[in-house]
Simulated scan of single mutants.
Amino acid sequence: MWFRRKKPVSKPFDFSTLPQAAPASLEDMVSESIMLARFAARMALKNQIIIGVLRNSRAYDPADYTDAARDVLDEIVEESEESARLAWEEREAAEGRVALSKHQHDYTEGDTANLKRREDVHSTVASRLQALRDDDDYIAGFIESARDAAWTDIALAISAKLDRDWPTLASDGHGVELDTGPEYAQHRAKRLRQLSRDLTQLSREAKRTK
């Protein structure tokens, strides 16, 4: 007679045995928040530079974007200050409350420490970004990094357009590529008009992402 072997019963995993991850320090949280804020501000300024370059006939001048650079930083400072204020209000409302939370934003006494930490992070981010906003050297470097990002976007758009629509180029033997097609001159104006339309479209897309 054959007997089915019983499967061993495994014990439930004890999550309490896992090592506890150390909470991020206030400085780490502030540094990460500032990094993300600066990235968002640079993208916003980049889009303004793209629009300005495509609309204006005069040469690019970084001084034209000093006010815009400070404005995008001001917006993030205001957002951080508002977030700090909301965290303070939520902490004040949660003081002394011991009832069970009805939803994730229904804070109680046990949440006050985290809310205070959130308030401190947003307040510190706002303060440091305000200092950067008032630093002329930082603003100059900030505009330059946004310009580099703008130039990269424009160059990629032009390169993609050339790869798609322009005739195959032949090398002159010295590493320089020349268009030898007989229809080059005939269609050059048409291609340039299409390229202009593509750059206009890039400007519109940049405006939509502001």
Rank of each mutant, 00 (worst) to 15 (best):
V77N: 02
S101T: 04
G110S: 09
F15I: 05
R97E: 02
R97Y: 11
N114T: 07
D61Q: 11
R97T: 03
R70V: 04
D74C: 06
R38V: 09
I34A: 12
V125K: 00
S31V: 02
A99Y: 12
H103F: 13
E92D: 09
E82Q: 14
A94R: 06
I49P: 00
R70C: 06
A68T: 11
A94S: 10
E81P: 01
N56Y: 08
M29Y: 06
P23Y: 13
E95M: 09
T112Q: 08
V125D: 00
D74A: 13
A37C: 07
F15T: 07
L100V: 03
D111F: 13
A84S: 00
Y107S: 00
E78I: 09
P8G: 04
E75F: 13
T112S: 10
S123G: 12
R128M: 07
V121E: 00
Y65V: 04
D67I: 08
A22C: 05
A126T: 01
T108R: 13
V125E: 00
E92T: 04
R91S: 08
S10Y: 13
T108Y: 06
K7S: 06
E75M: 10
R5T: 00
D71T: 11
I50E: 00
E27S: 14
I76G: 01
H103G: 11
M35S: 11
L100P: 01
S10C: 05
I76R: 11
A94Y: 15
A40Q: 09
S10V: 06
K7T: 08
R5L: 01
P12R: 12
A113M: 09
R70T: 05
S10Q: 08
T124W: 05
R91Q: 10
